[in-house]
Nucleic acid binder design. Structure first.
Length: 323
DNA sequence: AACCTCGACAACCGCCCGTCC
DNA sequence: GGGACGGGCGGTTGTCGAGGT
C-alpha cells in the first residue's frame, strides 16, 4: 500500500487562491499561529489541502515577505549562494530573509539561469576564439585564491545585508513612513492583474478585514501583539526589544498594517536587500542562516572537488564582467 | 482581430526527514 | 525500534498575460 495522499483528492480545491480564502487563512493563523496545518482546512472550512495552506502562508501571506523585482545586490547574493550551496533554495532563502525559497527558485529558473548560460556561452565563444576556459587554464593556487575571493565577496555581501546596524537603521519606523511605507499605496513595479500576484489586493483586503473584524474593534493592539508572536512562531518580541506599552496602539496598528501592507512591495527601494522591515527581522530567528565560515569549512574540507566544478561552471571573471 | 509563442510566476506533487507514540 | 504522521524542500506543471505574426 502506498502512502495516502495528504488530502483527499475529491472536494479539494486547486488553483489560485481567492481573497476570501486568504482572509480565512490569515484570520485562522492570527488566532492560532502557524502550524498544525492538518487542522487548518477543517477548522477554517477551506476546501484546500493542508500543504496548500502552508504554502500559501509561507510564500505569500506571511508577514515580512518582500516581493517584486530583485535588486542587483540580491541577485549577486543568490548567484554566489547558489554556487556555494547548490539548489538548496531554503538555505539560500535563509540568507535573504525577505525572500521565499519559492521566489528565489523561480527567479533563478527564469532569470539567473539564462543570464549565466549567456555568460557561459559567451565564455565558450571566447575559448573558441583562442581563449581557454578558466577551468582549463587555472592552476590550483589560482583557483583557491579565486574561491577565497569569492567567499570573501559573498561574506561581505551577507554581512552587509544582515549586519545589525543596518537592520536597526533600516528597519525602524521610517519604513512605515507614508513616503516609502505601506500606507502610501505605492504601486509595485511589476504588478500583475491576477489576484494571486496582486499582493496589494491582499494587503488591502486584509487591512479591510482587520478594520472590520469584531476582534479588531475589541482590541487592535492586543491582536497585533498576539499575531506578531503567533505569526512569527516565536515569542521573541516580548523578551528583548519588547515593544513596551510606550509603543502606543497607533504604532502597533501601523505595525500590523505594515504586516500586510508590505512596504517592501515598493521595488523603488534602491538596495532593499540591505533593509529589513521589523516584521522581517522577527522571522530571522525562524531560519537562522548557517554562518558563512561553516560554509567555507565545508567547502575547503570536503568540497574541494565541488568547488572546482563550481568554478568551471561559474567563472568569477565572467561574473565580474557581467556585473 | 485572431492565433501562436514565450516568459513569469503561482501552485502542485512527490520525496524525504524529524518527531511522536 | 519502528510505523504513522506532519511538515519541509526541490522539481515540475499549469495558468495567464504580453508580445509577435
Amino acid at each position: 500500500m502506498g502512502r495516502p495522499p495528504c488530502c483527499d483528492k475529491e472536494g479539494v480545491k486547486k488553483g489560485p487562491w481567492t481573497p476570501e480564502e486568504d482572509i480565512l487563512l490569515v484570520s485562522y493563523i492570527q488566532e492560532h499561529g502557524p502550524g498544525n496545518w492538518r487542522a487548518v482546512p477543517t477548522n477554517t472550512g477551506l476546501l484546500r489541502c493542508s500543504k496548500s495552506c502552508r504554502l500559501r502562508w509561507t510564500n505569500y501571506l506571511r508577514p515580512g515577505i518582500r516581493r517584486g523585482n530583485f535588486t542587483d545586490h540580491e541577485e549577486k547574493m543568490i548567484i554566489h549562494l547558489q554556487a556555494l550551496l547548490g539548489n538548496r533554495w531554503a538555505a539560500i532563502a535563509s540568507y535573504l530573509p525577505q525572500r521565499t525559497d519559492n521566489d528565489i527558485k523561480n527567479y533563478w529558473n527564469t532569470h539567473l539561469k539564462k543570464k549565466l548560460n549567456k555568460i557561459q556561452s559567451g565564455a565558450e565563444g571566447h575559448s573558441k576564439d583562442g581563449f581557454s576556459s578558466p577551468s582549463q587554464s587555472i592552476t590550483r593556487g589560482q583557483w583557491e585564491r579565486r574561491l577565497q575571493t569569492d567567499i570573501h565577496m559573498a561574506k561581505q555581501a551577507l554581512s552587509e545585508a544582515l549586519s545589525p546596524e543596518k537592520l536597526i537603521s533600516n528597519s525602524g519606523l521610517s519604513e512605515l513612513k507614508p513616503s516609502t511605507g505601506c500606507l502610501s499605496n505605492t504601486q509595485p513595479a511589476a504588478q500583475s492583474s491576477t489576484y494571486a500576484s496582486s499582493t496589494e489586493n491582499i494587503a488591502r483586503l486584509l487591512k479591510g478585514w482587520v478594520r472590520n473584524s469584531p476582534k479588531s474593534a475589541r482590541s487592535n493592539s492586543a491582536i497585533t501583539q498576539n499575531s506578531l508572536n503567533n505569526m512569527s512562531g516565536t515569542d521573541s518580541v516580548s523578551s528583548e526589544g519588547t515593544p513596551s506599552k510606550a509603543n502606543n496602539e497607533i504604532e502597533q496598528s501601523e505595525t500590523f498594517e505594515s504586516l500586510f501592507g508590505f512596504e517592501s512591495f515598493d521595488s523603488s527601494h534602491s538596495d532593499t536587500s540591505q533593509s529589513m522591515s521589523p516584521e522581517a527581522s522577527l522571522f530571522q530567528d525562524e531560519s537562522k542562516p548557517l554562518p558563512l565560515s561553516l560554509l567555507e569549512n565545508w567547502l575547503f574540507d570536503e568540497g574541494a572537488s565541488q568547488g572546482k566544478e563550481f568554478l568551471s561552471d561559474f567563472s568569477l571573471d565572467d561574473n565580474a564582467n557581467f556585473f
